[in-house]
Simulated assay, not measured.
Amino acid sequence: MTPIAHRSGMSVAGLLVAGGCIAGPAAVAQTAPADVATVAPGGAPVASAQPAALTGQVGAVDRGRNRLAERTLGVEYQAQPNFYYCGPAATRIALSSQGKALSQDELAKRLGTDEAGTDSALDITRVLNELTGGGYETVEIRDPVAKPAQVDRLRAHLLDALDVDRPVVANVKGTAVDTEGDPHSYEGGHYLTLVGYRDGGDLVRIADPAAPKGGYWMTLEKVANWIAERGYSA
């Protein structure tokens, strides 16, 4: 697939974020932090990618915080109907957890999806915010392999989001193997939805609009490395 610069435009903050189902690497404005950039809905980097405080849902202790050890959201799964609708399909799965059932065609219009895919994780964040009242931000993992701090930050964002019934939409690239040993390969890029966790976030439940079985579990570290050089909406 062609590089991101051939597909995505520059935001007001100078951010380029990779898209999918077919897309390339991302680059971020120099003012952003060195390892992870968080981008507000309007496109401007914010000072920190620290997650919002958790409210409610007290359960097992995870890394010193009161958490549920396991949680999977109820979503309506719908497979993508063609090779380039992964963005609309993943967004629809995320929205279904809040009772919103827009068609993939309607979401494709909102996202600007065409046969080259959905340009940017920023588009996913924008549409999620338009339809949920806000709160989603775009977070990028810049490195080709996620650093431990980036893995931990993804865990924090994922648990914070899922504990308030908000699935995370991730932009991935390459091949990753799930807990059953099945490989999932998207060399051109792909959007999918993170809808659950186990073991305090060590395992992540993925609703994949292109997977034959629809969903699978994967370790957090593998998910972070799959997102590497791309981003997620949380």
Rank of each mutant, 00 (worst) to 15 (best):
Y191Q: 11
V145W: 02
R166P: 12
L159E: 11
V177C: 07
S185D: 15
D178M: 06
N171A: 11
Y186A: 13
D178T: 05
P167F: 06
L154V: 02
D165V: 04
T193W: 11
D165N: 14
L154T: 02
G188A: 06
T193D: 07
E187V: 12
L192T: 11
Q150A: 12
P148I: 03
V164E: 13
A170F: 12
V169A: 13
T175Y: 10
D152Q: 06
K173D: 06
R155T: 02
A176E: 08
K147Q: 08
N171Y: 03
D165G: 06
T193S: 09
A170C: 14
Q150R: 00
E187A: 11
V164G: 11
H190L: 12
G174Q: 04
V169P: 14
H190D: 09
P148Y: 04
K173R: 15
G174T: 02
R153C: 03
E180G: 08
G189V: 03
T193N: 08
L154G: 01
Y186G: 06
R166A: 02
V172E: 07
D178N: 09
R153D: 11
P183Q: 04
D165H: 08
P148S: 00
V168A: 09
V164M: 13
T179R: 03
A161V: 00
A161K: 05
D160W: 15
L159D: 06
A161M: 13
H184C: 02
K147W: 00
L162D: 14
Y191L: 13
H157D: 08
S185A: 15
T193K: 08
A146G: 05
G174L: 02
G181F: 03
K173I: 05
T179F: 08
Q150G: 08
T193I: 06
A146E: 07
K147H: 07
G181A: 05
V168I: 13
P148M: 01
A156T: 00
K147V: 04
A146T: 09
V151M: 09
L154C: 01
N171Q: 14
